[in-house]
């Protein structure tokens, strides 16, 4: 499987350790040889701009924030993101392969639990900064299931009944 266009997003916060990690030579090799990446789009939030000039064969674009990243998600072949619930829902809803990188420097980060659970259900892959390269090396999109939308209708039906509307 080729991932020509990879989109990295960290939401409205900052996750400079992730962006720095991505700029390492080892990651560049994996992107180029294993994932066949040609374009890398980085949404870095409140973080600082990091130098990617050594990514010779990959076209790198960076920006901080945008009103909507919907199109960036749609156009991507692979999304690498932080563990934010909103981002996970957006990406899975658009049926894109998702790799969540957990920020283990945040204490009591209950969003890790969400990434773990969605991984257990087979919808995404998650890793930490320390095993990012290995995870990218063995990333297998066929092991992922397509995200099914939730049971909101069941709740609404129950609520209608509960309020005496049925």
């Amino acid at each position: 499987m080729e991932f020509k266009r990879i989109f990295v997003t960290v939401g409205t916060t900052e996750f400079d350790h992730l962006i720095e990690k991505l700029s390492e030579k080892e990651v560049y090799e994996t992107f180029k040889c294993r994932l066949k990446c040609k374009e890398l789009i980085i949404q870095r939030g409140k973080g600082k701009e990091i130098d990617f000039s050594h990514f010779e064969d990959i076209n790198v674009q960076q920006f901080d924030l945008k009103t909507t990243i919907e199109n960036d998600i749609i156009e991507a072949d692979l999304v690498i993101s932080h563990a934010g619930a909103g981002t996970c829902i957006d990406v899975l809803g658009k049926k894109k392969p998702l790799l969540v990188v957990v920020n283990d420097t945040l204490m009591n980060n209950h969003q890790v639990e969400l990434a773990e659970q969605l991984n257990k259900d087979g919808y995404l892959v998650y890793c930490f900064l320390s095993n990012l390269v290995e995870t990218l090396e063995k990333f297998d999109v066929t092991s992922l299931k397509e995200y099914e939308t939730g049971n909101l209708n069941k709740f609404i039906e129950y609520l209608d009944d509960f309020m005496g509307f049925i």
């Binding site: 619930a85 829902i89 209950h110 969003q111 639990e113 969400l114 773990e116 659970q117 709740f155 609520l159 509960f162």
Partner: peptide
């Protein structure tokens, strides 16, 4: 009616 957020797993 209270609906606990989606990100509350455990």
């Amino acid at each position: 009616v209270f609906i606990e957020s989606y990100c509350r797993v455990k």
